[in-house]
Simulated scan of single mutants.
Amino acid sequence: MKWLFPVLLLLLIALQFRLWVGEGSMADVVRLGQEIEAQSLENETLKQRNAVIAAEVEALKSGLDAVEERAREDLGMVKSDETFFMVVEPDKAKGR
C-alpha cells in the first residue's frame, strides 16, 4: 500500500503535464483556435478577391467595352480618331 499513493501521484502529475504543456494541451488548443481565426480571415479576403477577378473575367468575355477599357489603362491605346494629351505635373521636390 505504500507504493499506491506515489504511483497515483505520478499518474496525476503526468496527466496534468499533458493537459497544460504537452501536445493537445490547453495552450495548444488556444493557439490552434487563433490560427484558425487568422486563416478564416485570410480565406474571406481571398474569396472577395476571387469574386472581383471572376467578375472581371466575365466582363472581358462578354463584351468589347471591358477589353477596350483594359487596353486603354494597361497598354495606353488610343482610337484612331482620338487625340492623346499627357498632363505632367511638376515635381514639388525639384521646384525648391
Rank of each mutant, 00 (worst) to 15 (best):
W3V: 06
P6D: 00
P6F: 01
P6I: 02
V7A: 15
L8M: 13
L12Q: 06
L12I: 01
I13N: 11
A14R: 08
Q16E: 10
F17Y: 12
F17I: 01
F17M: 07
L19W: 09
W20C: 06
V21N: 15
V21Y: 15
G22Q: 03
S25K: 02
S25P: 02
M26G: 12
A27Q: 09
D28F: 05
V29H: 08
V29I: 12
V29Q: 08
V30C: 02
G33V: 01
I36S: 07
I36R: 09
E37F: 03
E37Y: 00
T45K: 14
R49M: 05
N50T: 04
N50W: 02
V52D: 15
V52A: 14
I53D: 11
A55H: 05
E56S: 10
E56Y: 05
V57F: 09
V57C: 05
V57W: 12
E58I: 00
E58G: 02
K61H: 08
S62I: 00
S62R: 10
S62E: 10
S62L: 04
S62W: 00
G63I: 00
D65F: 02
D65M: 04
A66S: 08
V67F: 04
E68V: 04
E69V: 02
E69H: 07
E69Y: 05
A71I: 02
R72E: 12
R72T: 04
E73L: 09
E73Y: 07
D74I: 11
D74A: 14
G76K: 06
V78D: 08
K79G: 14
K79E: 15
S80P: 04
E82P: 02
T83W: 00
V88T: 11
K92F: 03
K92E: 13
A93V: 12
A93P: 01
R96Q: 11
R96D: 10
R96F: 09
